[in-house]
Design a binder for these strands. Structure first.
Lengths: 114, 114
DNA sequence: ATATTATATAAGTAAATCATTATATGCTAA
DNA sequence: TTAGCATATAATGATTTACTTATATAATAT
């Protein structure tokens, strides 16, 4: 009935982070694929610094990790996070976002980071 | 694997609401008991209007319902909400808050609303 | 070396958020 | 009807948020 529980204050911090359409969508996307910043920039209609700031917040909270690959930085879900079970659980209530990846591919914008 | 899903924008709105320590705690408390505003006022160290504003937000989002009982207004979880499954799911990751009720009773502050 | 591309950081700003105090409303009880 | 309690609403202010533009850093390619 009760999974291992998270301090309420920490949970509130995490939920506030996810209470933003852009970051929530990012996380759901990362649930099926890794993404680089430039892809996020193409997908969301905001500036590159805005995207950098969003991923930074997710990273500071320990929700995502980054790996450099050449000049690109690839972000991925951090499955080791203590709040990963909660996040994962949440994600199951959200619609799949793979269509965004498909749109990218149709526009030939996915190739860039490979 | 996938429960019936909620539009991402709506989910973000709900999560933003829950991304506040006071409201998140309220919801977790309402998961086991109904509460009136005056009890919340005793429990949280904020003014009565602050509490009213928090419960109003929860009510506007359809997360809680209210019933008047004499001069008191009792708030309860709205289990009919389309986002109730998500909320319920979240609650399972949070520590039980019944000790707050016990504290109230020890101070003799619970009687007031009965 | 220099230019180009990807990303991060800094600085500034408009809007949103969460509290407060003051006041209004609504029920109850004398 | 008036007093008192519970709750809601209004007005205000400090803080936070999420963007923007400008600039810095880091890797790649010529």
């Amino acid at each position: 009935m009760e999974t291992s529980s998270i301090e309420i204050e920490r949970a509130a911090t995490i939920l506030k982070l996810l209470g933003d359409k852009t970051r929530l969508t990012m996380l759901k996307m990362l649930d099926s694929h890794d993404y680089c910043v430039c892809e996020f920039v193409e997908i969301f209609k905001v500036s590159q610094p805005a995207i950098s700031q969003h991923v930074r917040k997710l990273k500071d909270a320990g929700l995502v990790g980054e790996t450099r690959r050449g000049q690109w930085i690839i972000y991925s879900l951090n499955k080791e996070s203590d709040v990963f079970p909660l996040v994962q659980n949440l994600m199951n209530h959200l619609p799949n976002q793979d269509f965004k990846l498909q749109e990218l591919e149709e526009q030939g914008l996915r190739i860039s980071c490979e």
